[in-house]
Design a protein around this nucleic acid. Structure first.
Lengths: 336, 336
DNA sequence: TTGTACGCGTTATCAC
DNA sequence: GTGATAACGCGTACAA
């Protein structure tokens, strides 16, 4: 079918072994080097990665396991990861587990069966066992966005705690006393951290927390809608709100629109994750931006490093900073 | 390292050939069948896909080549494709070419080098040559979203022409005479078709087209913003507008918000592609919805069919219907 | 430096 | 129905 080393060998008059050595960067006579180079170009020879893989048990493929492909936050990261990896000749098999823990395990197995050389994943459950067994098989794993307890594994995340902390702090500085938050699910790492940020800033400013202002959603649009509706219908509603991911921000805005509530007059609003959205709605939305590009690049470079056998400072834990963009959706509150 | 057929053979007392035949669904004595089954389970044997690939020259991998991973319309399709393919044991290597024609070719080569069994792609340029050469190599290709001229290739698209036609028709029925459209780039198939729909409905209703109302953007946010700004600043602005993709819809909404223009009082508005968006903005946006799930499923099933060697009605051209959802962003115009 | 021979795990072909 | 055995294309000792 396609051109093999054998073909190159016979046409160049050299042996298969020599050609192979040349391809893999070994020492070959300058003279032969030229000949081989020429023949390879003439024949259009390309290494058969799959035959090579059989021998080396390396597939030059990285598995990417993410919660959903219908979430721009995740796919942006994926896009950046792919860009970096392809430069090193790695392809990426992307699996989304549709926010389903069973599917997550299934797809992890799938990737393993496909003999990926490494795995980058955003774990959902805390099935650190599955991940552990992968690491035990000497397959490098990089966790992104969400950390896992009791596990030695390279991890790239954003400083979720301070992301929430800083946003809430701004609201406090502007005079808000009753600040609501719409969190993600308890089981999810980022949700825990963002809530911690909310709690810690209250402590630091010596403010007590009204637990009725802390709403727990599921990172989906509908919960953002429902929970914000609940908040604005309270007898004593919050004067400001932080919504902690993109989907819920979307939902919360729907609730605002339908509830005849005005931003920022009736409620100050800080959203999450999507800069474009902040410009479409009126007034412009204040927003917490995560460094998606960096996350992808750092994750990809980390796994590339491990793939090269560099085990320095393992396990690495990199915590990237978010950015808070304040716009007119937040109002200064008169202190009375 | 891992368990091989050889191991299964020696432990079961049968030959490698028999085990292989069993695995691939050949006829084996009921008696042996049981033994093999048991041994496989005990040993936890799994086929080494890469060794199998070397022999069969099949990788059980489909290449997916899309313009961008940061576009929910594309990634939704990808997600659905992946769901279908994985059920048949296929993995998908996803490449995005970042709307760059050179990158598109590069990544196509990359996929070929990875020996994918088939390719599903949304082509950008009209480099039908590259695709043709793939097909000539007997690698099935399915085009989605965008058709290519002069080429025999299975294609799955939506009826873009009538998508635009129907939207504009509704506006006409509601009494609008000056209807603007913000199109995509001339080179892109979907943009051409949507524009044709605009033109045809004007013909059918015997209305002439004011070419200053036909704006050509590039499917990016900024152009939607810029072009809608231009439209509303006209001396005689349109009374209604159709924006023909999601990003430009986003941009156009920004312009509306900043321009102190009211929807639908000052201008009736129909957007594209994203249902969620339609609920977030106020008033609720009328929108053209594409059947992303179907697109993905049909495309995946088509390539699966070809992979099985079924060449019936090749090349198939499937045209899926869009849905028009009318909301309060469109106003009935008084006929005077 | 170069060449020979063999192994990687499967599948396919043929005898039996 | 079953079992040797030759491929598949490449890497790698080892010998030359």
């Amino acid at each position: 079918m396609s051109v093999t080393i054998k073909d190159v060998a016979s046409k160049s008059g050299l042996s298969i072994a020599t050609i192979s050595k040349y391809i893999n960067g070994g020492n070959v006579l300058e003279e032969n080097r030229k000949i081989i180079d020429k023949v390879i170009k003439e024949l259009g020879f390309e290494v058969n990665e799959i035959a090579r893989g059989l021998k080396t048990s390396k597939t030059k493929t990285i598995g990417l396991l993410i919660p959903s492909l219908e979430n721009i936050f995740f796919t942006s990261i994926v896009s950046n990861i792919e860009s970096v990896l392809i430069k090193s000749g790695y392809s990426t098999i992307i699996c989304d587990y549709k926010e389903d823990k069973d599917l997550e395990k299934q797809k992890l197995d799938f990737l393993l069966k496909k003999m990926v050389d490494g795995i980058i994943t955003m774990p959902m459950g805390n099935d650190s066992e599955a991940i552990k067994s992968v690491i035990k098989r000497n397959i490098p794993v990089v966790l992104i966005d969400r950390a896992l307890r009791d596990i030695d594994c390279d991890t790239v995340l954003v400083d979720n705690l301070n992301a929430a902390y800083n946003a809430i702090e701004q609201l406090i500085i502007l005079g808000h006393k009753r600040i609501g938050i719409i969190c993600g699910p308890d089981e999810i790492y980022t949700a825990q951290e963002r809530l911690k940020g909310y709690e810690r800033v209250h402590e630091d400013y010596n403010m007590s927390i009204d637990s009725s202002l802390v709403k727990k959603g599921d990172y989906q649009v509908e919960s953002g809608y429902r929970l914000l509706s609940e908040l604005i219908k309270m007898e004593e509603p919050p004067t400001a709100i932080l919504v902690t991911n993109y989907e819920m921000t979307l939902g919360a805005l729907m609730a605002v629109n339908e509830g005849n509530v005005k931003i920022p007059d009736d409620i100050s609003f800080i959203g999450f994750d999507n800069l474009q959205l902040s410009k479409v709605v009126k007034p412009p939305l204040s927003i917490v931006i995560q460094p998606v590009q960096q996350i992808g690049e750092v994750a990809a470079n980390t796994i590339l490093k491990r793939l090269k056998g560099d085990t320095s400072n393992f396990p690495s834990m990199i915590r990237l900073k978010t950015e808070l963009i304040m716009k007119e959706s937040v109002q200064k509150l008169e202190t009375n």
